[in-house]
């Protein structure tokens, strides 16, 4: 299958590992990955901050960049939710985008992607993956199939981490208070790695874990699935 990669501007800039991992997993499963190089940003931050008008050209550009692809996959639940939930209303069309774990489980029908990752991992279901995309147990089903991986439950897992896009800056104090509770719960699990399907949330929680010199790493689920 020929699959378009929608990397997202955040991964493109600060989290190169997620995109590489998506490519590696899909190619290992025998699929061809296409990366339209003109892609930039879906406009989520603009839309969610109240700059709807500024978002329209980005949505049009997105449709152009990914034209002709039957399947577009992305390692960001919130950007996928942005395209799926809002593009039809913004520009009248919503390209067929899938969040990575959703694509693997629902479209390709696989949960064991042949990965090995002998570490203790806990999983944070990010809000847009949980409530807008209804990812359910897809990401954890994929993680459970990874050889050597020990998945431990995260207390209050469904509580928001406090990132919230521009909320992290506009309401930085509240954002950090929420993130602190989340990061403490992560540390309480004794996990070596916190995994999620959105690097924006991981940038926030991981930013705290790093500042605290905790030694706990954050990884995108795709990066774990790419490990052999």
């Amino acid at each position: 299958m020929r699959v378009g990669l929608f990397l997202t501007c955040l991964n493109d800039t600060l989290f190169p590992g997620a995109g590489k991992a998506v490519v590696q997993v899909l190619e290992r499963l025998g699929h061809e990955v296409v990366f339209p190089p003109a892609q930039t940003c879906c406009g989520q931050a603009h839309f969610n901050t109240g700059y709807r008008r500024e978002c329209v050209p980005l949505a049009r550009k997105f449709a152009k960049d990914f034209a002709g692809l039957d399947h577009v996959v992305s390692p960001s639940a919130s950007c996928v939710a942005m395209v799926r939930e809002n593009y039809r209303e913004l520009v009248g069309e919503s390209p067929p985008v899938y969040e990575f774990s959703e694509f693997l489980v629902d479209v390709l029908g696989v949960t064991d992607v042949g990965a090995a990752f002998p570490h203790r991992v806990t999983y944070h279901p990010t809000c847009h993956g949980l409530r807008l995309l209804d990812l359910g147990d897809r990401p954890t089903a994929l993680l459970r199939a990874v050889r050597g991986l020990r998945l431990v439950d995260l207390p209050d897992a469904t509580h928001c981490c406090g990132f919230g896009g521009t909320f992290a800056l506009k309401n930085a104090d509240t954002s950090v208070a929420m993130g602190t509770d989340k990061a403490r719960n992560v540390l309480g699990t004794g996990a070596e790695v916190l995994a999620a399907v959105d690097n924006s949330c991981l940038m926030h929680i991981g930013g705290l874990l790093s500042r605290w010199r905790s030694g706990t790493r954050v990884l995108h689920v795709a990066e774990i699935l790419a490990a052999t």
Binding site: N48, C127, R131, L132, C160, F163, G164, F167, K170, N171
Partner: peptide, 9 residues
Amino acid sequence: PYASTLCGA
């Protein structure tokens, strides 16, 4: 309107 992370709970 900004006093929310849009978490959806």
